[in-house]
Design a protein around this nucleic acid. Structure first.
Lengths: 200, 200
DNA sequence: CTCCTTGTTGACCGTTCGGTCCAGAATTAG
DNA sequence: CTAATTCTGGACCGAACGGTCAACAAGGAG
């Protein structure tokens, strides 16, 4: 069964994904409607009827990032078929792999949004906080898996540390910093998670 | 002795400082010439003759931030009248104090520039990298002071970690994250710098 | 006082911005 | 078929954008 009226000629999710990549790479203000029109091939009126105005497009793009990228990272952190510390290693390696293997210096849309729009737009801030919260919870769960006897305070501290380092690496990668330098922070964190006295 | 011609009616450094705060708070694209005119009280032509176009204003504002804020942080990290780990504590506490005591959620202009402009403008990227480099060197020096026997690799790792955490906290603070949450990352880092076996 | 240089002011420039509107095209229901 | 509904393409909008220019003001040098 189909709605009456002319059917749309595009896949909304696919178009939203293209919009997401634009905002991700260039930020809110530096992305123009003209860029979105060029990237999607859609007409302006179709864009507006499908997604609303520019701010709504940005918010939807950010929400889509949360689904596509944040939730994927969370899934890795919660994957029970890998060792907990391996999952955290993978989480912190993603920013380095992106730069090294794909020359992708877009960073993390969530982190970019924090720097770019969150302090000017409450809804953006709320989305960003939710994304950070998801990641921190997932990291905390992995830490708990790694050592079930660890106290809650230590877990909270280390989970926050890991997400903060993730955020810092992603932002710094946008400035063109060398992968080798970025990687030192990951190495330091992981070294501290497996302190000398824990290695028999 | 004075230059021939009409004397300027403003203090360039003071005006540049006002421009810096605008770009710092709102980023490059979201700051309009009209905002700069309103904040400085200068005419448009005076602005252009004094600082060049908008991009030049941004670059000069970022350079001024490096002098006013980054160099100040470096000075604290290199202050020999405080214990080395206290200096690092102070460095990592600055992002928290700003939020708690002054409700200042502008973050760090350097970090904002990394997320905002560095990937689109090479000169911005170069300035950002230089600023990060300064901070990392100063942190490394403090770590060396704290333990002169530490190997270079450990120092490099921990210095990068500390700057990365600094950057992450600053960015996350813009999203409205609670100070208590932000602070956990600092606590975790400092706890790792003074591991249990080091406390006699 | 006259020249020369520099700074200020405000009008003005073309472009681009985000956003709206409407005529026409494409579909379903009857 | 017609009517109703929905989507598309492009013209159009006022406002704001970054940037320039020329007339004028304010000082020093001679």
């Amino acid at each position: 069964m189909q709605q009456p009226g002319r059917p749309r000629e595009f896949d909304p999710e696919e178009m939203l994904s293209k919009i997401m990549h634009l905002f991700w790479e260039n930020g809110y203000e530096a992305t123009g409607l003209s860029d979105i029109i060029a990237a999607t091939g859609m007409g302006k009126a179709s864009l507006y009827s499908a997604f609303g105005n520019k701010r709504a497009m940005y918010l939807k793009a950010l929400a889509q990032y949360e689904i596509l990228m944040v939730d994927a990272a969370v899934a890795i952190l919660r994957a029970h078929d890998r060792a907990p510390l391996d999952r955290i290693d993978a989480y912190l390696s993603a920013p380095l792999v992106a730069v090294r293997d794909e020359a992708d210096r877009r960073g993390c849309f969530l982190c970019n949004a924090a720097a770019d729009r969150a302090s000017l737009d409450g809804k953006t801030g709320a989305l960003v906080l939710r994304g950070y919260g998801k990641m921190r919870s997932a990291v905390a769960a992995a830490l708990q898996d790694a050592d079930p006897d660890l106290d809650a305070a230590s877990i909270a501290r280390n989970a926050q540390l890991i997400v903060t380092v993730y955020s810092g690496m992603r932002v710094m990668s946008r400035s063109g910093m060398e992968v080798a330098d970025l990687a030192l922070a990951k190495d330091a964190v992981l070294a501290n998670l497996t302190p000398p006295q824990a290695r028999a």
